[in-house]
Design a protein around this nucleic acid. Structure first.
Length: 427
RNA sequence: GGAGAGGUGGCUGAGUGGUCGAAAGCGCCGCACUCGAAAUGCGGUGAGUCCGAGAGGGCUCCGGGGGUUCGAAUCCCUCCCUCUCCGCCA
């Protein structure tokens, strides 16, 4: 949610900024509603004031033993008028809130203009894509060859398209990756390890921005009240830990790390990435979430992105970092770095992490605040999130980058302790 | 699933229709006393929102929603959550 004061006082400037990410905001319509709200609210509140005063007078008269009937007559039609004003006000406020919840975040000044990923800006690259003296295979072929380690047919049999079954060494490698990432982030980067529910209520999803707008991207649980959704990312439960809280300044920054499955309906991505496990309905991810002071959040974004990069560096996987342009950013983000890992099977860089600063966008929705030490007053804090990393895609990257001519896959050195000392996955 | 008890401010905890946003205690902040600290005394100390240049003022909030009433933390309905006992269960 955007700052209501800004929205109220400067709707045109908001429209201009939202245009940078390709969002059309009808500032005039909003201003009109806002004017109505103001009028209705002050009318409602003065009626409430009137009622409160009269009621108090009745109470006093009663206590003093004076007759009350004339006073009761005086307030006879107040109730009707108040009810009418309240319901009008509510209508306008609902309309305003609907608009507010549907507005994406304002892009940070440093966000490049553009419509889609073609306009993203490469910030840096690390490592060199490997060259093979044989035809590089993709993870689907490699996984199948490794004793059915990646079994898409089995996934389809159980659950349909975009599901996979992993077996044996590949399944263990997948687990090893997650364990390794958790250990690095807790032991070296100071994040607090967390285990969270994979089903969350609508409030939480509104808090982080998935609802009300992106309902069709989520899996819902049937026949359960109140309604629950499967989390599309651990960012949802992690960030919402701060919902409704006021955090003291000396507690910040807070950093959470969590390994969880993520569930996405992938509505609207029909036909994209249908091969392999690049785009699944269910995938594992190690997620980082930070809560920071507003003046620290951009420095924190740089740190958080580095924390994700370090995993790739230690795995010796080549990658690049791009700054997303306005049109390619997610709904809640003010600025996003994507980390793209080199996939020999596709001979291209593919997203393996997305690190965003949402500034106070989510915090306003969640009522997540910190106490400003100078004013002593609660103010929205800033939230950041980043994958570090997507475990499934990381598995793909390891398989493809570490493949050998004979179909074996070398296990990255840092993962070997998690693999019982094994050095190779063998067909 | 069955039976019962509860949900009040940072915490403990009073409050069963009328100046109650809420006693008291703890905590916290300020001041006084002190060389300093402790103890003590005095004062202050919830959140949201609106109007206003400001001073200031209004409104809302006692788990959520709805209702009764001139007036609800208090009464009624409903949902959620917590606790205890029984059953079941990883």
């Amino acid at each position: 949610m955007l700052d209501q004061k800004t929205l109220r006082q400067n709707p045109d400037a908001v429209a201009e900024q939202l245009a940078r990410r390709g969002h059309v905001f009808d500032a005039e319509h909003y201003a009109r509603l806002e004017a109505q709200r103001r009028e209705l609210q002050s009318r409602t509140e003065s009626l409430q004031h009137e009622r409160n005063a009269q009621s108090r007078a009745i109470g006093q008269a009663k206590q003093a033993g004076e007759p009350v009937q004339p006073l009761l007559d005086a307030v006879a039609d107040l109730g009707e008028a108040l009810k009418a004003a309240q319901s009008e006000l509510e209508t306008v406020q609902t309309a305003l809130r609907t608009i507010q919840l549907g507005l994406p975040n304002l892009p940070h000044d440093s966000v490049p203009p553009g419509h889609d990923e073609a306009d993203n800006i490469e910030v840096r690259t690390w490592g060199t894509p490997p060259s093979f003296d044989f035809d590089a295979r993709d993870h689907v072929e490699l996984g199948e060859a490794l004793g059915g380690g990646l079994d898409f047919a089995a996934g389809a049999k159980l659950s349909g398209a975009r599901f996979v079954v992993m077996r044996g060494g590949v399944a263990r490698l997948h687990r090893a990756l997650a364990q390794y990432m958790l250990d690095v982030h807790t032991e070296q980067h100071g994040y607090h390890e967390t285990y969270v529910p994979y089903l969350v209520g609508e409030e939480a999803l509104i808090g982080t921005g998935q609802l009300p707008k992106f309902d069709e991207d989520l899996f819902a649980i049937a026949g359960f009240e109140p309604p629950l959704r499967l989390i599309p990312t651990a960012e949802v439960p992690l960030a919402n830990l701060a919902a409704g809280e006021i955090i003291e300044a000396d507690q910040l920054p807070v950093g959470y790390v969590c390994h969880s499955p993520c569930f996405r309906s992938e509505a609207g991505s029909y036909g994209r990435d249908t091969r392999g496990m690049i785009r699944q309905h269910q995938f594992d991810k190690v997620e980082l979430v930070q809560l920071t002071r507003p003046d620290d959040s951009y420095a924190a974004l740089e740190r958080l992105t580095r924390h994700a990069e370090i995993i790739l560096q230690q795995l010796a996987l080549p990658y690049r970092v791009v700054t997303l342009c306005g049109g390619d950013m997610g709904f809640a983000a003010a600025k996003t770095y994507d980390i793209e890992v080199w996939l020999p099977g596709q001979a291209s860089y593919r997203e393996i992490s997305s690190c965003s600063n949402t500034e106070a966008f989510q915090a306003r929705r969640m009522q997540a605040r910190w106490r400003h030490p100078e004013t002593g007053r609660p103010e929205p804090l800033h939230t950041l999130n980043g994958s570090a990393l997507a475990v499934g895609r990381c598995l793909v990257a390891v398989l493809e980058n570490y493949q050998q001519a004979d179909g074996r896959v070398r296990i990255p050195a840092v993962l070997q302790p998690y693999m019982g000392g094994r050095e190779w996955l063998t067909p």
